[in-house]
Design a protein around this nucleic acid. Structure first.
Lengths: 211, 211
DNA sequence: GATCAAACATACCGCCGGGTATGTCTGTCA
DNA sequence: TGACAGACATACCCGGCGGTATGTTTGATC
């Protein structure tokens, strides 16, 4: 997410991206036609194809934006000069908050990985998917790294295969993407309350306890 | 899951159901054509439409079977004459094992709820979806019930809104559906090892700790 | 105020896939 | 052995959607 100039051109682009995110999120990739997105904006196909060369590229743009968001949300925690456990908790908090606040993009982000299932047509798009998977791996690696350090410290615990523990940890954090539905009256306080409970659950599942 | 007679008719039906589950799981609902499922069986459309009136009905059958499986997997724990915490753990274990063993059906089951997004055409299918959601709610209610009892006992803890805790708990249990990929060499022991770690994580997140 | 390009809208093409109508084979039973 | 139904395969229809080709409007620039 490089700095976004606020000219008209970029406003239109952002508007399209958001509309696409909402459509893809609510109807899924296939069931969302270009006309669907256009109608959502009170426009026609011409507008969409003016900014994006294909439906797949539009989807990829939404997906990549979603990835930008989670990186941005967890950067402060990851780079913080704090004990490992606090860094991990800060990352978890940022991650969950992003899941709640940018729900549409996060849902698309999740579906984006399942896009493996579809027949990627062009070589460019295959490249785009590969890059996205690489970013995804890099993102998860941050969590794995901190967990490993926590294990070395003895402040965290994991089973014989720590990978499973990390996956379960992140599944808990990703939960809201599946069950949360944003409502008109939502406040930041409500988001924080949800995030706190999820983070508490997940961190407790991870912690080493004197048994 | 009523008792399944092993006549030829039913064998064909089960064969179709399994093939459909695999196709839907690997390619998604829209990207899976009737011809895809047929080819997967070395057959043609005629066979599929002989057993199912429409693509949607085929999908619903797979989805409902998935629901049958999770109920069957968790019934013993739910109805066991044991302390609440042990019953909950047994349910969790059964649930996770089902996620691993019947991976295809479980993935379809998960997508089935997102099918809200699609335009349900006929009234019959809308009814089918409503019934499925009702079953899903009933299933989750079992977990909510045991959590509530655990809270009353004091053996479990939850945040201000226990619903969030339950959702997070189940998100952890559902994790494998998203990240687990069955491999040819998989053994029951491997499944058990994964299940144990997930159950341990989730139960620890739920437990009341002397702080 | 003529030019031109950006920013769309409109009209249209081609294919794919759900569904149907019809044909074909095979076993069964009277 | 002929009638008939179950269990498919084959051929076909048609609506929708991705993509394109072609207008049309609007603002900036000279």
């Amino acid at each position: 997410m490089t700095d976004i100039a606020t000219n008209a051109r970029n406003d239109r682009y952002e508007e399209l991206l958001t509309a696409a995110a909402e459509c893809f999120q609510s109807r899924g990739f296939d069931a969302t036609s270009i006309d669907t997105v256009a109608r959502h904006l009170g426009a026609t196909k011409g507008r969409v194809y003016h900014y994006f060369p294909s439906k797949m590229d539009l989807f990829n743009a939404v997906r990549d934006r979603g990835m930008d968001i989670v990186f941005q949300a967890t950067d402060p925690g990851y780079f913080a000069d704090l004990p490992v456990l606090d860094r991990l908790e800060a990352m978890a908090r940022g991650h969950v908050r992003a899941m709640l606040q940018h729900h549409s993009f996060m849902l698309v982000l999740k579906d984006g990985l399942l896009m493996r299932r579809y027949t990627t047509t062009t070589e460019f798009q295959k490249e785009s998917l590969a890059q996205h998977i690489a970013r995804r791996d890099a993102y998860e690696a941050r969590f794995r790294e901190l967990l490993a350090k926590g294990l070395a410290e003895g402040s965290l615990r994991a089973g014989p295969d720590p990978a499973i523990t990390v996956q379960t940890f992140m599944s808990a954090l990703n939960g809201p993407v599946a069950w949360f539905r944003p409502r008109p009256g939502d406040t930041p306080e409500k988001f924080d309350a949800i995030a706190e409970e999820i983070v508490r659950f997940a961190m407790q599942g991870l912690r080493a306890l004197p048994s």
